[in-house]
């Protein structure tokens, strides 16, 4: 059974319960941060911060109206995760239920996933030399919703089977006259397990345009080793010709 989480920023009040709860369940330390005029803090995801709320303030000088959006950001848990494809040591796994999980015991810190992810999610930690990111509480799912979802006071995060979440997303899309990012309107990397229903264009929230298929460069990583075949053949051919030449020289 595949599960998904619906993220509904229009319902979010920016209390950051998700951010703190994530640290609690995953036993991640608080980061040493500095003053943020925008309030997004820690300003970026990191090895110790799997998820955070991005505060996005818009102010219209002419009408005087202000809009403050709170955007929960973390791994999208793609159907075809580029990070997992790029990983040379198979440390990243897509689970049937949806989570894309880094096994940090396997991780060698090569950062291929960091580069491969179109959302810039996996984060390298110089202290441990490993990469980590949100794992959709693979240990809880499906027995219990992810920790952040449980904590959300306003149901801006909802957990359910992927089908039910898609249903809810479509209904909410109509209410908001908005967009569904992750499925329906936009299926990055084959669709994601975190699905956003938005009341404005995805770009307003800083969501990138990502194609449904894996970026062509990711399979290159995987398949380029096949070049060893022509290399081996070429080398063999060279050695054969070299040996033949030497034999000839010896005969002479």
């Amino acid at each position: 059974m595949e599960y998904a989480v619906l993220v509904d920023p229009a319902k979010c009040i920016g209390c950051r319960a998700c951010q703190v709860t994530c640290k609690r369940w995953n036993n991640r330390p608080g980061e040493e941060t500095t003053f943020s005029n925008e309030w997004t803090n820690p300003p970026k995801l990191s090895f110790d911060t799997y998820t955070h709320i991005q505060f996005k303030l818009e102010h219209d000088e002419t009408t005087g109206s202000t809009k403050w959006r709170f955007f929960n950001w973390r791994c999208m848990h793609c159907h075809e995760p580029a990070c997992a494809e790029a990983c040379p040591v198979s440390a990243i796994t897509k689970h049937e239920e949806g989570p894309v999980v880094v096994n940090i015991n396997r991780c060698i810190g090569c950062k291929f996933c960091v580069s491969a992810c179109p959302f810039g999610i996996p984060k390298f930690d110089p202290d441990t030399g490993k990469v980590d990111k949100c794992h959709m509480c693979y240990d809880r799912v499906p027995h219990k919703e992810p920790a952040c979802v449980q904590s959300c006071p306003t149901d801006a995060l909802l957990f359910g089977t992927r089908d039910s979440i898609i249903q809810k997303a479509m209904k909410r899309k109509e209410e908001l006259n908005g967009y569904v990012y992750g499925d329906i309107d936009n299926k990055p990397l084959g669709g994601t397990s975190f699905i956003y229903v938005l009341d404005a264009e995805p770009s307003v929230f800083g969501l990138p345009e990502v194609g449904e298929a894996l970026p062509a460069t990711v399979p290159v990583i995987k398949y380029s080793k096949w070049l060893l075949v022509p290399a081996a053949l070429g080398g063999l051919a060279y050695l054969v010709s070299w040996r033949r030449r030497r034999m000839k020289e010896k005969e002479e």
């Binding site: 369940w25 036993n27 198979s90 796994t93 897509k94 689970h95 049937e96 499906p142």
Partner: peptide, 24 residues
């Protein structure tokens, strides 16, 4: 790399039902 691919492909779809953590 043939074997490697095989393992990797089989690894892509693991199940979370069995997956656990110390905390859980």
């Amino acid at each position: 790399f043939a074997l490697g691919d095989l393992i990797k492909l089989s690894g892509v779809k693991a199940s979370a039902v069995e997956a656990t953590s110390e905390k859980w």
